[in-house]
């Protein structure tokens, strides 16, 4: 017992020192990653941001991670992180601007989006969800109850129209996000589009970093994707990642 206590007291200063060295809170670790970025230590910054995202995702961290990848020349990863930032915060104008710069740098074409997908980006997916849910219940109450309570006020019609409008708006936004949730980004240049979901499969063609494609299905570490040009094939998770990180 005495021996154990002796060892404990000998190790205590070391542990305390390490505890003092290692930033503990998320904010402190975020600041440390930012410092690495400012010092040009992009690999270290990427490592720090990635660890933070694994623990507690935040749109700001995705944005900074995008900057770090851009600075280190990994434009595919940068575009992916900016897109993820915009999923969490569609109003982030800085992320949108940097995303365009990253795309311009590799001459990547932004994904072709339908009108309802553009519309969906006017707000976050959860905003659309709340809008759709609230207006749905509002419409249900306004349809079911007024005949029983004898409420014939014109306000009922107006409120019902507003609820239905909100329901259509929210539903359209959710539909847009549903289709956008299938998008992914090519992470590296000359990424092979393979015939089968295996490493030994031959490549049909090669895609550039930053190119967008829609995921149709997955098989293990492979995703079956369709490019805007209509090319289809399997891509490994090493060279392709979905924008939506469903954790």
């Amino acid at each position: 017992m005495k021996r154990a206590l002796l060892i404990f007291f000998l190790l205590l200063p070391t542990l305390a020192l390490r505890a003092a060295e290692a930033p503990s809170s998320l904010d402190e670790r975020f600041a440390a990653a930012n410092l690495a970025y400012t010092d040009g230590q992009y690999a270290q910054a990427i490592e720090g941001y990635t660890a933070l995202l694994a623990e507690s995702p935040a749109s700001t961290v995705y944005y900074n991670l995008g900057n770090a990848y851009t600075a280190s020349g990994e434009y595919g990863q940068a575009i992916l992180q900016y897109e993820r930032c915009l999923v969490l915060n569609p109003d982030n104008a800085d992320a949108r601007a940097n995303l365009k710069l990253a795309r311009d740098a590799v001459e990547a074409t932004p994904p072709t989006r339908a009108w309802y997908e553009d519309y969906a980006q006017a707000a976050g997916v959860n905003t659309w969800t709340w809008l759709a849910a609230l207006t749905f219940w509002g419409a249900a109450f306004l349809i079911a109850l007024p005949p029983l309570y004898g409420w014939r006020s014109p306000w009922r019609t107006l409120l019902l129209a507003l609820c239905l409008l909100g329901l259509v708006g929210g539903g359209t936004g959710l539909t847009g996000y549903h289709f956008m949730s299938k998008e992914g980004i090519v992470l590296s240049n000359d990424a092979p589009l393979q015939l089968a979901p295996t490493s030994t499969s031959p490549a049909k063609s090669f895609l550039h970093a930053g190119a967008a494609a829609d995921i149709k299905r997955t098989h293990g570490d492979y995703a079956y994707v369709v490019t805007p040009d209509g090319e289809q094939g399997w891509m490994s998770s090493k060279v392709f990642a979905p924008i939506w990180d469903m954790r």
Partner: peptide
């Protein structure tokens, strides 16, 4: 290198999930 807009120094909200509500 593209002249990026600078990184952010504060995080407004941690724990944001992409998993839709």
């Amino acid at each position: 290198q593209p002249e990026l807009l600078p990184i952010k120094t504060t995080v407004v909200a941690w724990g944001q999930s992409m998993r839709p509500l």
